[in-house]
């Protein structure tokens, strides 16, 4: 028996390197938690990436993921903090980012008092405050193309119409910037100043070309302006690495250098596309020339919702209209 007790743990120890775990991937149907830095975490696997800021005052989310992932998102949040969910900030209207507003928002609460309670009643404190650019409320509260209006519990409760909205929560200044006509007309970039993390929604993704949702006010130049805005906010630590971290709408955690690579790609392609449009190419000629073929293996796709063909068509139409 003694031999077993001594040798078996030894063998387990020695064999550990041989059975090292494989990398965990986002597409497992589970929600994964990654600590970014400071008070900020990234949740992956619930549709769009979700940013969580947690501290003594409670929990703040940037985006809420798909509706059918809400239970898993709530469970993941509870591995970070047991404090109440106080805020959800929607970076834009799409359901892979706002789908969880209803259920996750209902699981939270808002601290209210004074005139608010007097005017609305005690129910004013039910549910988390949902912050978004006004355009998000305008779209989510009515039939928007093929998308029906969301239930009223999923609507933003605190909208802004200015270039910027400020918040101070969990001992940290938080700047919310409106990025007009980018991925959509209601995009927000959220900067956690003390944690030094910026959550940018679908203005920046690592998994595809950017989606310019032209039906909802998105434009090519707006995405590019948004990428340059993110680069203005971020400061790398040393040798163009680390420092400010960037949570993209989809894909892996990034820093400024990753955004620069993507911005460069978008700028180089814009210059190329505009040159072709100025030469009078039709959309068919433009697409046939495969003008993004050098980046297609990296960001393009011939499957799924956002194909290379759709990216080229949206780019052509947006840039031809001077947007």
């Amino acid at each position: 028996m003694k031999t077993k007790h001594i040798v078996l743990p030894l063998l387990a120890l020695l064999s550990a390197p041989l059975c090292a775990q494989q990398p965990r991937n986002a597409d497992t149907g589970e929600v994964h938690v990654l600590h970014v830095q400071g008070k900020v975490y990234m949740l992956v696997g619930a549709g769009g990436n979700i940013t969580v800021q947690a501290g003594d005052e409670g929990v703040l989310l940037v985006d809420a993921g798909l509706a059918n992932m809400s239970d898993k998102v709530l469970a993941a949040i509870r591995t970070i903090s047991t404090k109440p969910i106080r805020y959800i900030i929607d970076t834009h209207v799409h359901p892979d980012h706002t789908g969880g507003n209803e259920k996750i928002g209902a699981a939270g609460s808002t601290i209210t008092g004074g005139n608010v309670v007097g005017d609305i009643g005690a129910s004013a404190g039910e549910g988390a405050t949902i912050i978004a650019a006004q355009e998000v409320l305008d779209r989510i509260s009515r039939k928007d193309g093929e998308t029906p209006a969301a239930p009223s519990k999923a609507w933003p409760t605190d909208t802004y119409i200015t270039d910027e909205k400020d918040l101070f929560f969990n001992g940290e200044a938080i700047q919310i910037f409106h990025q007009p006509k980018a991925h959509s007309d209601g995009d927000s970039i959220v900067f956690f100043r003390r944690s030094d993390v910026v959550s940018v929604g679908d203005i920046f993704v690592t998994t595809s070309y950017p989606i310019m949702d032209s039906d909802r006010g998105g434009t090519y130049q707006g995405v590019l302006d948004g990428l340059n805005h993110i680069i203005d906010i971020t400061i790398p630590a040393e040798k163009q690495e680390g420092g400010t971290y960037v949570i993209p709408g989809h894909g892996r955690l990034c820093d400024e250098a990753d955004v620069v690579e993507y911005r460069d790609m978008m700028t180089i392609l814009r210059d190329r596309f505009v040159d072709m449009i100025r030469k009078g190419m039709t959309l068919e000629q433009f697409k046939a020339a495969k003008p993004s073929s050098d980046y297609d293996p990296l960001y393009g796709s011939d499957k799924g919702f956002w194909t290379t063909d759709k990216f080229l068509e949206a780019s052509y139409k947006s840039l031809k209209a001077g947007k």
């Binding site: 090292a20 990398p23 994964h32 990654l34 971290y245 990034c254 820093d255 990753d258």
Partner: peptide, 9 residues
């Protein structure tokens, strides 16, 4: 192990 695919590069 190597990190998950959503970790920084």
């Amino acid at each position: 192990p190597h990190p998950p695919d959503y970790a920084p590069h």
